[in-house]
């Protein structure tokens, strides 16, 4: 039953793949290798390693490892900075008055423009890449956190005052949990943005990782490799988003249910 439903939902995917396969074979165009060739190349590149390493090859390790590490490090750093600053700004109308124009300006700067700057200011490689990612993705986290902290229900705050919560308690038990739904929305946006900036950063400031592999494949006419990178990046984006949604559903169970009942 489930299988039938899945087929009903997904039928266009195999159809597209087959059509793509036929079209690319007929065209014989080097830029567009048939999907079968791309898939074979992906297996060769990344999944022909020893079983002890879950079939992952050395190259898979050197392509995915640093990229994922940068992605998560940049995301985590932006999350910590963005949430901390956002709670502070959201709790103080005065502070947000002073900082609003600067935040809007910072958010509007297209992050790729700063890559050459970070490269000159910081070392080539990880520091410049992290700076690019953090600067680019901190804005949605910051703005969402500010909004969340600013709009905590007045009665939640008054209850905290009545029962004499300490400042720390008020922050960790009331304001941050209440702002959590919005913080999570910001974190999810930031995650997909982080993947984009990771690629930008690796292409410009990198010497390894998926972005680097993507560009070098293109430059060395390895088109199946290039397509392989695209496919794997799509899968990665899909997996990250799904994993995050799962986490969100778990952490914010109270939020969804609370909204359904009221």
């Amino acid at each position: 039953m489930n299988v039938i439903r899945a087929v009903g939902r997904l039928w266009l995917v195999p159809v597209t793949l087959v059509a793509w396969e036929i079209a690319t074979r007929a065209a014989g165009q080097p830029f567009f290798p048939p999907p079968s060739a791309t898939l074979a190349r992906m297996g060769e590149m990344w999944l022909s390693g020893p079983p002890a390493h879950l079939l992952l090859t050395e190259q898979a390790m050197s392509d995915f490892g640093p990229s994922l590490a940068r992605l998560f490090a940049g995301w985590a750093l932006a999350a910590v900075l963005g949430v901390a600053a956002g709670v502070a700004i959201g709790c103080s109308p005065r502070l947000s008055g002073y900082l609003d124009p600067l935040i809007h300006l910072g958010r509007a700067v297209p992050p790729p423009l700063l890559v050459p700057f970070f490269l000159a200011l910081l070392k080539l490689g990880t520091p410049a890449q992290l700076a690019t990612i953090v600067f680019g993705i901190i804005w949605p986290i910051l703005l969402n956190t500010i909004d969340g902290a600013r709009t905590v229900d007045r009665q939640h705050l008054e209850t905290a005052r009545i029962f004499g919560f300490s400042t720390a308690q008020r922050l960790t038990r009331v304001i941050v949990p209440a702002a959590m739904p919005k913080i999570f929305a910001g974190l999810r946006l930031a995650l997909s943005l982080a993947l984009i900036l990771l690629i930008v950063a690796e292409i410009f400031a990198g010497s390894g990782g998926l972005g680097y592999r993507l560009l070098s494949a293109q430059r060395t006419y390895l088109y199946a490799d290039m397509w392989g990178c695209l496919v794997v990046l799509g899968l990665l984006g899909y997996l990250l988003n799904s994993a995050f949604l799962l986490l969100e559903r778990r952490v914010l169970a109270w939020h969804r249910s609370a909204r359904q009942t009221t």
């Binding site: 292409i203 695209l230 984006g237």
Partner: peptide, 14 residues
């Protein structure tokens, strides 16, 4: 759902 998560800058080399 399969196409959208591809980070958009990655299509620039193509």
């Amino acid at each position: 759902e399969f196409l959208r998560p591809i980070p958009s800058v990655a299509v620039i080399p193509l």
